[in-house]
Write a protein that binds this DNA or RNA. Structure first.
Length: 407
DNA sequence: TCTGGGGTCCTAGGACCC
DNA sequence: TCTGGGGTCCTAGGACCC
């Protein structure tokens, strides 16, 4: 049986949801941003794209390109809710669904498409239902594998549907720039160009030995990608995470040690809380520091035991901070845990509220011991510990990758 | 007025062991 | 007097994605 994969990709998802929720935004250039001062454009409406506004731009750049742009601070609740509802629509057509990100899903309809009049009919039904139920457009790509389904939806955007059948693929790829493929970014594009390879067609017919030589094991995958071949299966069941972390760009660059430590405590509390909530504990703690010039470094320490206790994460991260000499002010601080283990029996998951208070108190205690009176203000600082103001499209609607703690 | 935050995977190089 | 060699594990950084 020939595999048939659908890639369903929302068009300008966050911006579309906002335009739907607020009619005054419809037909206007809208950019969804985070709540902090140093935020960037997360998603922009198609009206804003016409002006060259791009994801990742800071608000001043965006404003310069499009003076009448409307900035909307993102609301993760809205998007995760819509995402969950979208999954319900998909599940009418197949049980084999990979929710790849908050605005994108893969559906394997190999064994079910005949029940609905074919894959294209499913795609059209989904588009119609999404429009009817949520008022937003999506694009559907259909192909024999995920790589090509994704490409089909990229090419058909916005509000499109495109089906690449097996026999169409060589002509689709022949003159397509390699960077259009999912997985080929600027660096690989540059290195391929150095070999005289610019199109997928050239990549697919490049000597295997050459690619293996330059890219190692990845070289073989690259060649297959150039031919439109992809063996990655759908990940239907959510897999356990490999790491849990938070980071934050500070409102201003700081050099004050106590302020840096306060940030580390706040982030440790958020990480510990999310780990406890979903029943994970980590053995490795990583501290990330970014300087104003954007140089970023990470340093990690392995603990003797797994933990999800705020105080232990904090102490470990602090130990790392104390082992380095900061050469400049600090722009961003990040804390994450990895080498995770399931911790299903962790009672703290059941008593998260108490555990949170306890761990915060413990952490505050340890700070108190160390630094004395300043810490009184830190407690209130922690009270407001909340998810970062920026909405990440990589969030998932449920499970540990839903960073929206209230859910 | 500069440049977010959540992840995963791969690799180079050093430590260590036999 | 002249630097074995293979394996594994760990760390830090980079590439890529949404």
């Amino acid at each position: 049986m020939k595999t048939i994969i659908l890639c369903i990709d929302m068009d300008a998802f966050f911006a579309s949801v906002e335009q739907q929720a607020n009619p005054k935004l419809r037909g206007k250039p809208v950019a969804v941003i985070g709540s902090g001062g140093r935020t960037v454009v997360t998603t922009r409406s198609y009206e804003a794209r016409k002006f060259g506004v791009k994801t990742g731009m800071n608000i001043y750049e965006a404003k310069k390109l499009c003076p009448h742009i409307i900035f909307v601070v993102g609301d993760s609740e809205k998007y995760t809710h819509t995402c969950r509802e979208l999954s319900k629509v998909y599940s009418r057509f197949t049980p084999d669904i990979e929710v790849y990100s908050i605005d994108e899903a893969f559906l394997d309809v190999t064994t079910t498409h005949h029940l609905f009049g074919g894959a294209e009919a499913i795609g059209l039904s989904i588009k119609e239902e999404v429009k009817k139920q949520f008022g937003i457009n999506c694009t559907v790509g259909i192909a024999p594998n995920i790589l090509m389904a994704k490409l089909a939806s990229d090419i058909a955007k916005p509000d499109g549907l495109r089906w690449f059948k097996e026999e169409d693929i060589p002509s689709v790829l022949k003159d397509l720039p390699v960077k259009e493929l999912w997985g080929i970014g600027p660096s690989i594009e540059r290195r391929l160009a150095g070999l005289g390879i610019k199109t997928c067609g050239e990549l697919g017919s490049a000597p295997a030995g050459l690619l293996r030589n330059r890219f190692g094991i990845v070289g073989e995958t690259l060649k297959l990608m150039g031919q439109g071949i992809c063996h990655r299966p759908l990940i239907v069941k959510e897999e356990d995470p490999k790491s849990i972390g938070h980071s934050m760009t500070l409102p201003q660059d700081i050099s004050n040690r106590k302020q840096i430590e306060a940030q580390i405590l706040k982030l440790s509390a958020m990480v510990g809380r999310r780990a406890r909530k979903y029943g994970f504990a980590g053995k490795k703690v990583t501290l990330t520091i970014r300087y104003p010039d954007f140089e970023t470094f990470t340093k990690q320490t392995t603990l003797s035991e797994h933990t999800n206790i705020t105080r232990e994460i904090y102490n470990c991260a602090l130990g790392i901070l104390n082992s380095i000499r900061l050469r400049d002010k600090v722009r961003l601080v990040g804390v994450s845990i990895s080498q995770l283990k399931r911790d299903d029996n962790d009672q703290m998951a059941l008593f998260d509220h108490r555990a949170k208070e306890k761990s915060i108190l413990n952490a505050v205690d340890s700070i108190n011991d160390k630094h004395g009176e300043f810490t009184v203000t830190w407690a209130s600082y922690l009270e407001q510990a909340k998810p970062p103001g920026v909405i990440s499209p990589a969030w998932r609607p449920s499970g540990v990758r839903n960073v929206n703690i209230k859910n």
